[in-house]
């Protein structure tokens, strides 16, 4: 199978998956017993007001009709109007997306750094107490999900030793001179390191909470692969050539041991993004996940739909990129 055919096939399954997600979300939320229209009306509104509002949001048609209208809108980039804020869903969602992307990428970087450092240390000191301690810490980190790590971090760095911000994305007192919502990225470009430090201080705990389980997975798998590679003949040869242990691990063993870990990171990254929903809530971080929970609580149907579709799109795109990267990196799949 050529790479082109592979990509086309993946794009097709991606489209089917996204369509499936759209169908499920659309029909699930239309079973909602609560009436969003009733909440929007002022007291004393008459029957015709209700009918007018229903017509405005297209809620007077049958559910399949609504779906077709909504879907054709989506294909034209129109995700409808949020019921609570009465603004276009697409704009609302895109305004929050950068915050979630920055948080997820930051968490990924933290996870790679911690996980990589643990794997290398564990390999360097294999057979010692240090390796044992790393194994135990990995086991703990893997067993407990991000939500609980977030709470533990709040206690440690919010109460016991209050050094980091416990909630929000940026201190409200700061005046932000930014033209996009990628605050972290733009603060670096504009050399506003005071704002950058404030942002990082807010992101520290949520990103660490998201990173801990992934760091443990990375550490475990990379250490395992390194261990296997260290026993191969070419590594022994490098040793007999007189290279030091650090050189052997990082220059000789690591490049060959890293591929399975890279694939795993890609798969696990979608789980990390899924975790932002509750972590953003826990730290009152103004991202997509926090907005999603508010939308569900307020029964803002168009907004919920838009957010879920966007998440599904992110997940499938990440998976696609991982697949293609893997195919490009792995010589056995390149011509397979």
């Amino acid at each position: 199978m050529t790479l082109i055919r592979r990509i086309l096939l993946r794009l097709l399954t991606m489209a089917i998956t996204l369509f499936g997600v759209a169908v499920i979300v659309f029909f699930v939320i239309r079973v909602v017993p609560g009436n969003p229209i009733a909440m929007m009306l002022p007291p004393g509104a008459g029957e015709e007001d209700i009918a007018r509002l229903k017509a405005l949001y297209g809620l007077d048609k049958t559910i399949p009709e609504q779906f077709v209208i909504w879907l054709s809108g989506v294909l034209h980039g129109d995700f409808g109007t949020s019921i609570t804020t009465r603004q276009p869903v697409l704009g609302l969602v895109l305004s929050r997306l950068p915050a979630t992307i920055e948080l997820s990428v930051m968490a990924l970087v933290v996870a790679v750094i911690i996980g990589g450092a643990l794997a290398l240390t564990g390999t360097r000191r294999r057979g010692t107490r240090t390796e044992g301690a790393i194994d135990v810490a990995n086991g703990m980190a893997l067993s407990v999900p991000d939500f609980l790590w977030g709470l533990v971090l709040i206690l440690l760095f919010g109460v016991l030793w209050p050094v980091f911000h416990i909630s929000g994305r940026v201190s409200p007192a700061l005046d932000l001179p930014f033209s996009t919502n990628f605050y972290l990225f733009e603060s670096v470009l504009r050399l506003r390191f005071d704002i950058w430090a404030d942002l990082v201080s807010h992101m520290f705990m949520p990103s660490l909470a998201l990173a801990i389980p992934l760091a443990a997975i990375i550490a475990q798998l990379l250490k395992q692969s390194l261990k296997e590679t260290m026993n191969l003949d070419y590594v022994t040869l490098a040793r007999t050539k007189g290279y030091g242990e650090n050189h052997v691990i990082t220059r000789e063993a690591l490049p060959n041991a890293v591929l399975p870990t890279l694939t795993l990171i890609g798969v696990q990254f979608t789980f990390l993004i899924g975790g932002t929903v509750i972590i953003e809530r826990l730290f009152s971080y103004e991202g997509l996940g926090n907005m999603a929970i508010d939308a569900v609580i307020n029964r803002d149907l168009p907004l919920i739909q838009g957010i879920v579709i966007l998440f599904a799109l992110i997940f499938t795109v990440v998976n696609l990129v991982v697949d293609l990267t893997y195919a490009a990196l792995n010589p056995r799949l390149r011509h397979g």
């Binding site: 499936g20 997600v21 979300v25 699930v28 909602v32 996940g289 999603a292 879920v308 997940f315």
Partner: peptide, 22 residues
Amino acid sequence: SRFVDIWMAFPPVLFAILLIAV
């Protein structure tokens, strides 16, 4: 398997909250 694929594209916590709301 197709259903599993679709399910994997949902953020689980959001899915749970959505279902409870319904």
